[in-house]
C-alpha cells in the first residue's frame, strides 16, 4: 500500500530546468468537478518524462488541457518559456508543441501521404515535400504505404502515421498519450529504445503518458504518478524503478489495489 508520505504537494515540484514545458498548479475538467487538481510538472529540453497512473487518474485530461483541447480552470502552462495557457490548439501547435492523442490519432479518411501533408500544414509549401522525405527516412514503412488509407492500416502502422504527422513540424515538445496501447511488443520496444531516445537526443522534450510505465520509465529522466487527479509521486525515473513498493502498485499492474483504496 502507498504510504501517505509519498504524496508530493504542488509546491514541492522538482527544481529542474523546465525550459521545455512548465505546468503550474493546473486544475481542469469537463465542466463538472475538476478531474485534475493542482498539477505541477516540468520538463527540460531533450528530457523524457513519463506520466503514469491508473485508469481514470486524469492523465488524458491533463494532456488535453496542456494542448488546448480542454480549458484550464486555473493554473498556467508554459512551453519553451512562453505562456500557452488556454490558447487555441492551432496556436499551441504553431508554438512547437506536437500532440498525438490516444485515440483517433490520424485522419482515417485520408491517405498516409495526405496525413503527412496536413502535419506540415504550417510549413512553407516548398518545404513540405522535403520534410515528408525526411520523416519517411525516419519511418521507411511510411514511404511504402504512402498511398494507403489510414482507416485500412493496422494499429501499429496507424500510430507510425500519427507520430510521423506530428514530427512534420519539428516540434520542440512532443506529447504522446498512451502511444503503446494496442501496439505489438516489438513496436513498443522500438518506440522506447530507438525513436524516443533519438528524438530527445536532438533536443526534443518528450512527455509520455503510459498506464503500464515500467518500460517507458527506463528511457525517461523523470516520472510522475497521477492518482485521482493529483500528482502522487514525482521522482527521477530511476528512483521510481528501483522502488518495488511503487512499482507493484502503479506500474506492473493491478490497479485494483488502488480501486480498493479509493
Amino acid at each position: 500500500m502507498m504510504p501517505a508520505s509519498e504524496h508530493v504537494p504542488a509546491s514541492a515540484a522538482p527544481a529542474r530546468a523546465a525550459d521545455c514545458l512548465q505546468v503550474r498548479d493546473l486544475t481542469a475538467g469537463y465542466g463538472g468537478p475538476p478531474v485534475v487538481r493542482g498539477i505541477s510538472l516540468g520538463l527540460g529540453q531533450g528530457q523524457v518524462a513519463v506520466i503514469a497512473g491508473p485508469n481514470g487518474a486524469g492523465k488524458s485530461t491533463l494532456v488535453k488541457s496542456i494542448v488546448g483541447h480542454l480549458r484550464c480552470a486555473s493554473g498556467s502552462v508554459t512551453a519553451g518559456g512562453r505562456d500557452i495557457t488556454n490558447h487555441p490548439p492551432e496556436k499551441i501547435a504553431r508554438g512547437g508543441v506536437g500532440y498525438v492523442p490516444q485515440n483517433e490519432d490520424a485522419f482515417g479518411t485520408m491517405t498516409v501521404l495526405e496525413n503527412l501533408e496536413i502535419g506540415g500544414y504550417l510549413l512553407k509549401k516548398r518545404a513540405v515535400g522535403p520534410r515528408i522525405a525526411e520523416v519517411m527516412e525516419v519511418f521507411p514503412a511510411l514511404g511504402r504505404m504512402r498511398k494507403r488509407h489510414v482507416s485500412r492500416l493496422s494499429g501499429g502502422e496507424r500510430k507510425m502515421v500519427a507520430i510521423g504527422r506530428v514530427l512534420m513540424l519539428r516540434p520542440r515538445l512532443l506529447i504522446l498519450d498512451e502511444p503503446t496501447a494496442g501496439l505489438a511488443v516489438a513496436l513498443t520496444t522500438e518506440l522506447f529504445e530507438r525513436y524516443i531516445p533519438a528524438l530527445s537526443a536532438t533536443g526534443v522534450g518528450v512527455l509520455l503518458v503510459e498506464q503500464k510505465a515500467t518500460e517507458a520509465l527506463r528511457v525517461a529522466d523523470w516520472g510522475y504518478i497521477l492518482v485521482s487527479g493529483q500528482v502522487h509521486v514525482s521522482e527521477p525515473a530511476s528512483t521510481i524503478l528501483s522502488r518495488p513498493d511503487i512499482g507493484e502498485v502503479f506500474l506492473g499492474g493491478s490497479s485494483s489495489v488502488l480501486a480498493g483504496e479509493d
Binding site: 494542448v67 488546448g68 483541447h69 487555441p88 490548439p89 492551432e90 499551441i92 501547435a93 504553431r94 500532440y99 492523442p101 483517433e104 490519432d105 490520424a106 485522419f107 482515417g108 479518411t109 485520408m110 495526405e114 501533408e117 496536413i118 502535419g119 500544414y121 504550417l122 509549401k125 504527422r165 506530428v166 513540424l169
Partner: peptide, 24 residues
C-alpha cells in the same frame, strides 16, 4: 489543394486538425 485537404481534415477530426495547426 492545400485548403481542400484542410477542409477534409477538419471534417474528419476537428481537434486533430487544430492540433496540426489548422485554424478550424
Amino acid at each position: 489543394t492545400r485548403a481542400g485537404k484542410a477542409i477534409r481534415a477538419v471534417a474528419d477530426n476537428r481537434d486533430l486538425a487544430r492540433s496540426s495547426g489548422i485554424s478550424a
